[in-house]
């Protein structure tokens, strides 16, 4: 399983977590990631608007390019998980679910974590790395 990187956006489109796991995407500054997150939040909203089918169910879920494949999971609370993986990576859904579980455990259940703020929970990162890159 090769996951390139993970981004988490809060309800307003602000970036609250970003981490690279494997080589594949360019290294950008934190400001660049913030801008990217904001842009994506807007684009996500528009993608449900331009749906040619009337009862459109939500916005962008999968984005494909030549070199990567991005899955966007939006929770019912408005938080977005962006998982970047290699183009032919199967089973990203499983990864997404697991990341959401880890988030619910180590972030949400941490009483000292301020909601919608950047995630600085060491336990979350530790478990995430252990899951994504187990041999490291």
């Amino acid at each position: 399983m090769v996951i390139l990187s993970i981004l988490i956006l809060n309800k307003a489109g602000g970036l609250i977590f970003q981490r690279d796991f494997n080589e594949g995407l360019k290294k950008l500054s934190s400001n660049d990631y913030l801008v990217l997150a904001g842009t994506f939040h807007g684009v996500h909203a528009i993608t449900s608007r331009i749906s040619p089918v009337r009862d459109s169910g939500g916005g962008l879920e999968v984005l494909e390019s030549d070199r990567f494949r991005m899955q966007c999971f939006q929770t019912l609370t408005g938080t977005k998980f962006l998982i970047f993986a290699e183009p032919n990576q199967p089973n990203i859904d499983v990864v997404v679910k697991r990341v959401y579980e880890l988030y619910a455990d180590y972030v949400m259940k941490n009483p000292f974590y301020q909601i919608e703020m950047p995630i600085r929970c060491e336990a979350f990162e530790r478990n995430l790395v252990a899951y994504i890159k187990p041999k490291q």
Binding site: F40, I46, S51, V53, L60, E61, L63, S65, D66, F84
Partner: peptide, 28 residues
């Protein structure tokens, strides 16, 4: 707007050679 932003995003993330191919939502 969507297509332009996504294409720029993809270029920023993985270099100017990469190109965005498609995206899927729940309905289209």
């Amino acid at each position: 707007g969507v297509v332009f932003s996504l294409r720029n995003m993809v270029r920023k993330l993985s270099g100017p050679d990469d190109s965005f191919i498609s995206y899927r939502t729940g309905s289209y």
